[in-house]
Design a protein around this nucleic acid. Sequence first.
DNA 1: TTTGATGCAAAGTTTTTGCATGGTT
DNA 2: AACCATGCAAAAACTTTGCATCAAA
Lengths: 180, 180
Amino acid sequence: MFDSKIGCTFVTSMKTDPNIEDFAASNNPVVRQFSDYLDAHGMRKTTERYAILSHILNISGHFTIEELQQIINADGFRVSRSTVYNTVELLMDAKMLRRHVFEGMQAQYERISLPHTHLICTSCGKVKEVRDPSFAASMNARRFNAFNIDHYSLYVYGTCSTCARKLKRTKNDNGNKRKK
Amino acid sequence: MFDSKIGCTFVTSMKTDPNIEDFAASNNPVVRQFSDYLDAHGMRKTTERYAILSHILNISGHFTIEELQQIINADGFRVSRSTVYNTVELLMDAKMLRRHVFEGMQAQYERISLPHTHLICTSCGKVKEVRDPSFAASMNARRFNAFNIDHYSLYVYGTCSTCARKLKRTKNDNGNKRKK
DNA sequence: TTTGATGCAAAGTTTTTGCATGGTT
DNA sequence: AACCATGCAAAAACTTTGCATCAAA
């Protein structure tokens, strides 16, 4: 859709890239975690994989596969869609990335960090993360019969203040707001 | 995939079906809620729509679009995939049905009833609903800044006891269990 | 050198759409 | 009788796959 960018940006050929190699060799704990995972599974440490990880680290919040590739391309790197999918799956296996599918939206990914609640605006689709220590504490204490908890996600759907204001102004609509 | 069933079952032509008409005329509060919704939006009360609703009511727990259509077909009715999607969307708009997409699985639907927590086994994919009154109570009391809550979903991922047992037996595997 | 990863394009899934037909109001 | 819903098939979105090429170990 926005492929035009590719044409006007110098596209680095990748294979060996000093910036990425520095990144891969850095002491960044996230990099180390990924390297350890690759080692542990006998997988190769390719420039593409580190380039993708490096760009993910620059994203705050959620992103789609599409957006991730855009960001990488916009930065002058070339990675194929399949490699993006492949690496994202690797990062999920390595428990560094989580996929979320919120109601009616396409899959979004985010780095695994401290547990947090997702507030999803059903009007504009924006997702906000909220730390919620008391909820986290109660979940840590929570046990379920015959079920071993690995992780959890709390999705709270509703209306953000921006959309609430907009909706108030448009109150005299018919209530019919089907997706398309 | 399992279309073979269609061939060996008598497939009712629908358009007018006494069973479905009785169902549509019944005092079932769910039926009434749907009828009210259709009325309020100037939409037609078709036999297909009630047939789909009626079969959804017979399902306990979650179902996919595919499964729903299978169930309807197996019962001798004919509805197209698009009508299933259409009606399911209607039921979601009417706040009678909710779509869930659990990690790595295809979309599943369930009737909206009392709030409950979903326990999803990441090994076999089974989903169990668990009532959790204390959590529900705390959510009812919960407020977020600049955000109006409509509803929420708590997904808890982990391992069910059946799979935990199986995994224990297969402990001497290599830990590599990629999806395919 | 061996083996695994990438990129491309093609195939697969799931979901949506456009239009003629036919049922509901 | 008017018009909305259905069903079909075709298109669209998103994801996965197969294979030749190229790079990491």
